[in-house]
Simulated scan of single mutants.
Amino acid sequence: MKLAPIEKSTTAHKAADQIIKLILQGVWKPGDQLPSEREMVEQLSVGRSTVREALQILSTLNVVQIVPGQGSFIKNVGADDLFRPDLISLLINDAAVLDLIEAREMIEPQTIRYTCLRISNDQIAAIERLLDGHEEALKAGRDVAEPAMRFHIMLAEASGNPVSLAFIRSILELLQAHRWRDNPEEFKQRELREHRELLSLVRMRDGDAAAAYLVRHIVDSAMIDASDRKGQNARRTTLDTTDTPS
């Protein structure tokens, strides 16, 4: 399969995107050698520097290995390599947070249905220990953002689907990176209670109830965060007005 010509704008990123799509489609497999730079220049209708930049992007993403004097080869790509929050977070701004929450609402509740079918007793016990540690950290006044996020990741891991897990982990890490500020105490207490209730539904293997509860949990958390953002912005506006000379 040949690469299709693309427009000149953001050509390197579009070229890299084409290659990733072909890998996901199984056209190119681990160990396969990519076309030469000259062939890619012709197929993409771009300059050699653009091709080299695209290959460098893929190398940074751990998708391609560039071997001097030999060419570029597809690496053994896992789902985690194609969804790197540390890289794509640079493209996310506050306006995209709602899109991330919406994507989470699409994916995570459906994933938990499979978790209810596949989770083992050992995995349930491990999540219970996590929640106990979460509660101890909360009582001690320590930050609980990490165990709160880890709870959702462990549930996704128990689904047995690495692609869903990669999406969910990426979304949660991106949301965490763009968290407005430390959540209020009452939110943290409520979050822990809801996590325990959600685990109870998972333990009962009730996929429908767990999915419905998780949707409410995601939406309620988003509404609390949005309200907090609005309040902080209002206070900032008041301070700015007060500080402005008359």
Score class of each variant (00 low, 15 high):
K75V: 12
L22V: 09
F167W: 12
R181Y: 10
N183H: 14
D99M: 09
R84H: 07
K21A: 05
E7I: 06
P5F: 00
F73K: 11
T242S: 14
E136Y: 05
L175I: 04
L22E: 07
F73I: 14
A137Q: 09
I74E: 02
E146K: 04
R169C: 02
L100P: 04
E194K: 05
W28Q: 02
A226D: 09
D143C: 08
A12W: 08
R129L: 14
G231I: 00
V51I: 13
D81F: 08
K230P: 05
L100F: 03
I19P: 02
S227Y: 01
H178A: 07
Q232K: 10
H152Q: 08
E108T: 12
L3I: 02
L239M: 14
H134N: 07
E37T: 14
R52H: 08
R142V: 09
S59C: 12
G26M: 08
I74Y: 09
A226L: 07
D228T: 00
A222N: 05
I124Y: 01
T50K: 12
N121K: 12
D81A: 10
L214Y: 07
P147G: 05
L22Y: 09
Y114P: 13
K29N: 12
H178W: 06
K8G: 10
H178V: 11
R142G: 03
Q43A: 06
T11I: 15
M154Y: 11
A234L: 04
D17T: 15
Q25G: 10
R229S: 00
Q18Y: 06
A209V: 02
R235V: 13
R205L: 02
M223Q: 07
E173S: 10
W28G: 05
M1K: 06
N121Q: 14
H178G: 05
I19R: 06
I88K: 11
G207S: 01
R179V: 04
A95L: 04
S221N: 09
A126H: 15
R216V: 09
A126Y: 13
A103K: 11
V63P: 02
G47Q: 06
Q18G: 02
R142L: 15
R150S: 01
V77H: 08
E173T: 11
I92R: 04
G47W: 01
P184C: 06
Q33P: 11
V46A: 05
D32L: 10
Q43G: 04
A212T: 07
S45P: 03
I20F: 10
L130S: 01
A54Y: 00
R236P: 10
L55T: 00
A16P: 05
D86G: 15
V27R: 08
D240I: 15
Q43W: 02
A158V: 07
A166F: 06
P85E: 03
R118Y: 12
L174H: 07
G231N: 02
L174V: 03
I124P: 05
I218L: 07
I224F: 04
I66E: 12
E146H: 00
E173W: 09
P245V: 02
E197P: 10
L24G: 13
R142A: 13
D220F: 13
S72R: 03
I124K: 01
D240Q: 15
